[in-house]
Design a protein around this nucleic acid. Structure first.
Length: 221
DNA sequence: TCCCAGGCAGGGC
DNA sequence: GCCCTGCATGGG
């Protein structure tokens, strides 16, 4: 399968997604933590509440009341962890960069990645999502949808790093394509994999758009 | 009622 | 390295 082909099919099917939906890069990073194991609609509510309290900047969040932040992010689930983690992120930016998100994200990406990974609540996927959407680096994040998606192309034996390397090798070195493909795979997953999230042939089923089925036929056998 | 949603950390093996 | 569990709320 050629990933570019799949990308083009998905783009035709769903259109551009314009990820990441955030007004600032700090908001993007906070959103990346809040969206773990929850729906984006819940995150939107939390983001709105944080904004209303003027907490969506490093200094304000770092100096915020922990219980207040917990209340703001409650409906995203795991709210005690998440409140602590976004406050720690804010604190890290204030302590190390005078609260400058720009200075933080401008670091060499390998260095930035390990620094992100050292933060509580920032695992491989969250770090890579931040690298792509906030730091604008050519890094392709592998989330649960992308793993399911990949299994259908016979890539089931690759681990996170292997899968990531595979995508990065096949894809054009184009930020827009990276950002859109990740979003499009999620869109596909949300629309067509809900009823059978673990079904390895879900997007080959009747519920799939026909043109998408065509796109993946070559390697599905 | 049960299952899932754009994971992560910490433990065991 | 892989697998398990706790973390918690809200929607279908």
């Amino acid at each position: 399968m050629e990933i570019v082909k799949v990308y083009e099919r998905l783009l035709t099917e769903f259109g551009r997604q314009f990820w990441w939906p955030a007004e600032t890069r700090f908001e993007m990073m906070v959103g990346a933590i809040l969206t773990q194991r929850t729906t984006w609609s819940a995150v939107e509510v939390a983001i709105r509440k944080l904004k209303r309290k003027k907490l969506l900047n490093p200094h304000a969040l770092a100096n915020s009341n922990p219980q207040l932040v917990e209340a703001m992010v409650r409906q995203t689930g795991f709210y005690r962890q998440k409140a602590r983690r976004i406050r720690k992120l804010a604190n890290h930016l204030v302590e190390g960069y005078g609260g400058s998100v720009d200075r933080f994200l401008r670091k060499p990406w390998q260095e930035l990645r390990s620094e992100l990974r050292s933060l509580e609540g920032v695992g491989r996927e969250t770090a890579d999502v931040i690298l792509l959407y906030a730091a604008n680096q050519l890094v392709f994040p592998i989330d649960a949808y992308t793993q399911r998606f990949s299994r259908r192309f016979g890539l089931g034996d690759l681990d996170y790093e292997g899968l990531k390397a595979h995508f990065e090798e096949q894809m054009p070195k184009d930020l827009q394509v990276y950002k859109e493909l990740h979003a499009l795979i999620d869109e596909l997953g949300k629309k067509y994999c809900k009823k059978a999230p673990e079904c390895p042939s879900c997007i080959l089923s009747d519920t799939c758009p026909k043109n998408l089925t065509d796109a993946i036929r070559p390697i599905s056998t």
